[in-house]
Design a protein around this nucleic acid. Structure first.
Lengths: 336, 336
DNA sequence: CTGTTAGCGCGTTCAC
DNA sequence: GTGAACGCGCTAACAG
């Protein structure tokens, strides 16, 4: 593998001059510049990035911590984030915490060992006070997560609003017995949605019935089970708010098996606007989340932080969610 | 940030001894070892990985090249590959080529610049002769891809068999007018499936009708369009083989809108065994692919290559696919 | 068993 | 405009 030294020799110049050409420094005569360029291409020279990182204290890599990849929301987040990284000449390292505190800490260590310039957290397992000390070693930016006492940038979606509009939609349709079901891992995300949910109920002077509450629902199968639970209730809800389209899909398909009509007997709203919302019949009313904008903004802030080296500063960017009404809440004419 | 030098000073020893402790070398007395350990934890010392990489010529990172993340097949591949990497103490860098030759080359350069120890290709855009030269700089392992003239390891699924069993299934059910539709990007993958498809037809002495061929089908919407094309045909197929569950789902949902019964009027087989296969009604007959085993094996071979430093050696590991029969080909009793 | 020394490849003062 | 020399942090001979 050719080094900068080899290039210098071949060009009959010093390492310094070669380095200057590589880094586009001024004060290099055109003659020597082209001499260097020729030598570089002749040798197929490429700078060694470990050496560069050691010298510059920058790796041009960022780690993205997520609970897992196989969740359409996070898949899209990865896709968008990788694109944002690429546009900035950065590489993206994927870190699945699998909801484990230990794994999260292991990955946070990438900052200490200088394997990455910064860390984007889209999932938080540990208490903030155990994460905070890592800020000594580099920037941490929250994406789709939020911590009240964290003095770091946080780019997120207005989940409270999301919970509010979808619940209000159900209330506007006349529903008063509304079940609430959500996944737990989204921590603050789930909490915010619940606040919005309750706020809407309050506005309509409807009180929430605790037996209509379902937690830890993530998958299609979870949705199916929830429906089975619901039909055992004497007093059944007429509508249900879910924290994810998969869960909504599970509820809907299982409802059909049990002869429960959607939306007549049970209206269902999902969350995420995934592809399945248009596949299931009836199609699923859901909440669209502007993941691309969020990813872009997150990365942009990360670049700022990397350059400014000021990591501890609270800053919140919030994007609005959008309700997409489909057939699982409002019966529509059949299309031909 | 504390360096090895700081630790050595605090412990009153030399850098070498500290280094030996870090790397678990023998020949270090217990006394000094604990002296070093204490100094390390007191300073919160962690080795700088750029320095380590520069010295050892290893980065403990591997790049995974895929066309894009937001495709359930690749999402799962990423998820499994990240887990395999983590088990081996490696980090995984995600590289989306977006089907672009240039991007692929940019990412292959990670090998040259020594940012990664190896590259896993799950998608090939450029001709092999332009990829081959990169082998000078590190190992390349193919995963779910195949190149006849590439002298590198290739871990893949027997796509020919996959195409064969699903087509044979349709033939066994009595279908003789079978349409074929597939995505183009899977290059050799798609070709292999087609070979299996044709082989099955041949065994049943059925000839393929060219007007039943649809290319570049990837999405649900593509599936819908294909169905709309099909109904314009005078002579319609009675069954259709697709290269992906999304396409199959699109065909099925659109068929229902047009009053075409699945499977009675049109039998459909998908590919990938994604979650939607059980959501759509009728549920989709599909082909299961053992992605986890493939990812695991790929990474294991990568580790071998990284250590042995012998990169140019052909080696093929192939896993069988499995047909999963559901309602889109065989009408089943309604479950309650 | 332990310390001294010499680079890994690069960027950057600081002289010329 | 250009080059010599130092050091980023670490590991591995080599010599004791």
């Amino acid at each position: 593998m050719a080094t900068i030294e080899d290039v210098a020799k071949l060009a009959g110049l010093s390492r310094t001059t070669v380095s200057r050409v590589i880094n586009n420094h001024p004060y290099v005569s055109e003659k020597k510049r082209s001499l260097v360029m020729n030598a570089m291409s002749e040798l197929g020279y490429v700078p060694n990035s470990s050496a560069r990182s050691l010298r510059s204290q920058k790796t041009e890599m960022v780690a993205l911590l997520i609970p897992r990849v196989m969740n359409p929301f996070f898949s899209e987040l990865i896709e968008r984030m990788e694109m944002a990284a690429a546009e900035n000449g950065y590489q993206l390292i994927i870190c699945q915490t699998k909801y484990s505190k230990k794994k999260e800490l292991d990955y946070l260590n990438l900052l200490k060992t200088k394997q990455v310039d910064g860390i984007i957290l889209s999932s938080i397992q540990n208490d903030w006070n155990v994460i905070e000390p890592f800020l000594e070693f580099g920037p941490i930016v929250l994406c789709n997560e939020f911590e009240e006492d964290a003095h770091v940038p946080s780019v997120r979606l207005d989940q409270t609003y999301g919970g509010y509009i979808s619940t209000k939609h159900l209330l506007d349709l006349g529903h008063r017995k509304i079940a609430y079901c959500t996944g737990g891992y989204k921590s603050n995300v789930a909490k915010s949605r619940e606040i919005g949910f309750l706020k809407a109920l309050e506005e309509f002077e409807v009180s929430f019935q605790e037996e209509f509450s379902f937690r830890n629902a993530f998958t299609i199968e979870d949705g199916r089970e929830i429906l089975r639970e619901i039909i055992t209730l004497k007093d059944r809800p007429t509508a249900i708010f879910t924290g994810g389209d998969e869960v909504a899909a599970g509820i809907i398909t299982e409802a059909k098996r049990h002869g429960i009509k959607v939306p007549e007997d049970l209206a269902v709203v999902g969350f995420d606007n995934q592809a399945i919302t248009e596949l299931v019949e009836p199609s699923i009313t859901t909440v669209y989340q502007p993941i691309e904008e969020m990813a872009r903004k997150t990365f942009q802030i990360m670049m700022e932080k990397v350059n400014s080296k000021r990591y501890r500063q609270k800053e919140i960017v919030e994007y609005d969610l959008e309700l997409i009404v489909r057939e699982s809440t409002v019966k529509q004419g059949v299309l031909i």
